[in-house]
């Protein structure tokens, strides 16, 4: 039963991420990314990381995906002069060039076998016995505030710098457009 749920969410994740690559419409691929991120959050729950599943939904689905959709809408050409025919009538259609598929697929298949054989060859003896589970909210909170307090503060500074930088980049574009 639980294996079936795992298979379903794994199929949701992998199918969503494949559809991100396959579809030609950028807006559709953003929504398939939403599907894939929700599948990853469900896999987090199945791996008993409840706090991080909530954080995944809040940060990725609530923040990153909204930003990506804003990016799609801001880079959408209002008047596609170069496109003619039935493809110009589709919404959010952005023309891009094709790339070769053969070499990336070969590289990806090689990397898959390499990564998988490498990771599964590691022998972890500790994994045979599992300690009793405590809910991850308490332990993560304690570890963030005691053991990992310096990376926590550095992450705060990094987020502030990223916000200031993103605001500066966007506002500078406005100023050059107005001149």
């Amino acid at each position: 039963m639980l294996n079936l749920i795992f298979y379903a969410f794994a199929a949701l994740t992998l199918g969503g991420s494949l559809a991100v690559l396959i579809t030609r419409n950028v807006m559709y691929s953003a929504f398939f990314l939403l599907l894939s991120l929700i599948g990853v959050a469900a896999l987090f729950v199945l791996a008993s990381a409840d706090l991080l599943a909530v954080a995944q939904v809040m940060i990725y689905v609530g923040g990153v995906l909204v930003l990506v959709i804003f990016g799609v809408m801001l880079t959408h050409k209002p008047k596609p002069e170069t496109t003619t025919g039935p493809q110009a009538a589709r919404p959010n259609y952005i023309l891009t060039q094709h790339r070769a598929w053969l070499w990336p697929l070969l590289v990806a298949a090689g990397l898959f076998t390499a990564f998988y054989s490498l990771i599964s060859r590691i022998h972890f003896s500790l994994f045979e016995h599992r300690a009793p589970f405590q809910t991850s909210v308490d332990t993560i909170g304690k570890q963030l505030m005691t053991e990992y307090i310096i990376p926590f503060e550095i992450a705060g500074i990094l987020l502030l710098a990223a916000l200031v930088g993103a605001t500066y980049l966007s506002s500078q574009g406005d100023r050059t457009n107005n001149q």
């Binding site: 916000l163 930088g165 966007s170």
Partner: peptide, 16 residues
């Protein structure tokens, strides 16, 4: 996740 959020903000600003 925190670093990815920062990366998304800056990267999308650069793309725009």
């Amino acid at each position: 996740m925190a670093v990815a959020a920062a990366e998304v903000a800056v990267g999308l600003a650069i793309i725009v």
